[in-house]
Amino acid sequence: MSSFFAMGGYAFYVWSSYGAALLILGGIAIFSMVRARQASRRLEELKRAAPHRRRREEAANGA
């Protein structure tokens, strides 16, 4: 197992590469998810605050 983590002496380079990829891709994914949730929550709030627009919105949604 320890030989696996040592990566033939190149541990730093190999694990830094995978770490950097994880950090960047994970960061973008999490950030996008949080933003999507915030946006949809804000939209629901506003729809509740402006009920007279609700019917038109729903008609447009084809619901």
């Binding site: 996008s32 999507a36 804000r42 506003l46 627009r53």
Partner: peptide, 24 residues
């Protein structure tokens, strides 16, 4: 694909948020 769709969703939601805020 996954991240793109999520980002597009929130952009569309935000556009409607802006429109609603303007209307209010």
């Amino acid at each position: 694909v996954s991240v793109l769709l999520r980002r597009m969703r929130s952009e569309l939601d935000l556009a409607r948020v802006r429109a609603l805020e303007d209307a209010i």
